[in-house]
Amino acid sequence: MSDMQDYRSSLEDVNSRKFETFSYLPPMEPEGIRKQVEYLVRKGWNPAIEHTEPENAFDHYWYMWKLPMFGETDADRILEEAAACHKAHPNNHVRLVGYDNYAQSQGAAMVIYRGKPV
Rank of each mutant, 00 (worst) to 15 (best):
I33V: 15
I33R: 15
A103E: 05
E72C: 12
S2Q: 09
P26H: 06
D13M: 10
M28Y: 02
M69L: 10
D3M: 02
R17W: 03
A57D: 10
A48V: 04
R114Y: 09
Y61A: 15
P47M: 01
A103R: 07
L79E: 01
L25I: 10
P26V: 11
V41H: 01
I112D: 01
N92D: 15
L40R: 06
R114S: 02
Q104E: 14
Q104L: 02
H60W: 03
N46H: 15
A84H: 06
M110R: 06
P54Y: 00
P54K: 00
D74P: 12
E81H: 04
I78Y: 03
L67P: 03
F22S: 05
L96S: 15
P117L: 07
A82R: 03
A48C: 03
V94A: 06
A88W: 06
T21D: 06
N15E: 13
S9W: 04
N92F: 12
K66T: 13
M110S: 03
W62E: 09
A109V: 07
Q5M: 11
S9R: 08
Q5W: 09
I78R: 04
Q104A: 14
V111A: 02
M1A: 02
V41F: 06
H93C: 09
K87S: 14
N101T: 08
H89F: 15
G107K: 00
I33L: 14
D100L: 09
D74F: 05
E29C: 05
A84C: 04
S2A: 14
K35C: 12
V37A: 01
E53D: 07
M69N: 03
R8Y: 07
H60N: 05
E38T: 00
I112K: 04
A88T: 13
I78F: 03
Y7E: 02
R8S: 13
Y99T: 08
T73Q: 12
A57R: 14
V94M: 00
E72R: 07
Q36C: 08
K116M: 14
A75V: 12
A82Y: 01
I112Y: 04
I33S: 13
A84M: 10
P117D: 02
H89Y: 10
N91V: 00
N46T: 15
G44L: 05
P30V: 08
I112F: 09
S2T: 14
A75R: 10
S2L: 06
N92G: 07
N101C: 09
N15C: 10
Y7G: 00
I78V: 10
W65E: 13
E80R: 11
V118K: 15
P117S: 04
S105K: 08
F70P: 01
F22R: 13
A57V: 13
K18H: 07
S16K: 08
W62D: 08
N56T: 13
T52W: 03
G44C: 02
A82N: 01
E31A: 15
A109W: 02
F19S: 05
Q36H: 07
